[in-house]
Amino acid sequence: MGEKGCLSNRIRILRAEQKMTQQDLAKKVGVSRQTIISTEKGNYTPSLVLAFEIANVFNVGINDVFHYEKKEEWL
């Protein structure tokens, strides 16, 4: 038996609340717009530092942006 997790995020929602574009967020945290797009879609897992930087932009805790759910997987 192995374990696999799923990381979800609220970046799109938080951006909309602050009327911020993907490009705006990318500039504030020093990454490309494509990185923000991929992160929002769940195709890219950000580093811990980037995750904290994103949370800081929105002035919220990291748990208010990202949620990790551990799922068990039978081999």
Rank of each mutant, 00 (worst) to 15 (best):
M1R: 08
M1Y: 08
E3Q: 12
E3T: 11
E3M: 11
E3D: 10
K4G: 05
K4L: 08
G5C: 11
G5D: 02
G5V: 03
C6F: 14
C6N: 15
L7K: 10
S8A: 12
N9M: 00
N9W: 08
R10A: 15
R10D: 13
R10Y: 09
I11G: 01
I11K: 01
I11C: 01
R12W: 06
R12H: 11
R12D: 07
I13S: 14
L14G: 02
L14Q: 07
L14Y: 06
L14K: 07
A16Q: 08
A16V: 03
E17N: 09
E17V: 07
E17K: 10
E17P: 06
Q18W: 02
T21Y: 05
T21K: 10
Q22K: 03
Q22I: 00
Q22Y: 01
Q23S: 13
Q23E: 15
D24E: 12
D24H: 02
D24M: 03
L25R: 00
L25C: 04
L25P: 02
A26T: 01
K27Y: 13
K27I: 08
K28C: 09
K28Y: 10
K28V: 02
V29F: 09
V29P: 07
G30F: 10
G30I: 01
V31N: 03
V31S: 06
V31P: 08
S32N: 06
Q34W: 04
Q34V: 05
Q34D: 11
T35Q: 12
T35V: 15
T35W: 10
I36C: 06
I36M: 03
I37N: 14
I37E: 13
I37L: 13
S38F: 11
S38Q: 13
E40Q: 04
E40V: 00
E40G: 02
N43S: 11
Y44V: 00
Y44H: 11
Y44N: 07
T45A: 11
T45H: 15
P46G: 02
S47G: 13
S47F: 10
S47P: 14
L48A: 12
L48F: 14
V49R: 15
L50E: 06
L50N: 13
L50D: 13
A51L: 07
A51F: 07
E53H: 12
E53G: 01
I54V: 03
I54E: 05
A55M: 09
A55G: 07
A55R: 02
N56Y: 10
N56T: 04
V57Q: 09
F58P: 00
F58Y: 10
N59H: 09
N59Y: 05
N59D: 13
N59L: 04
V60F: 08
G61M: 06
G61Q: 14
I62G: 04
N63I: 00
N63R: 09
D64R: 01
D64H: 09
V65F: 12
V65A: 03
V65C: 01
V65E: 09
F66V: 00
F66R: 01
H67Q: 15
H67W: 10
Y68W: 13
E69A: 02
E69P: 01
E69Y: 05
E69S: 09
K71L: 03
K71R: 15
E72G: 10
E73W: 08
E73D: 02
W74A: 13
L75K: 10
L75T: 06
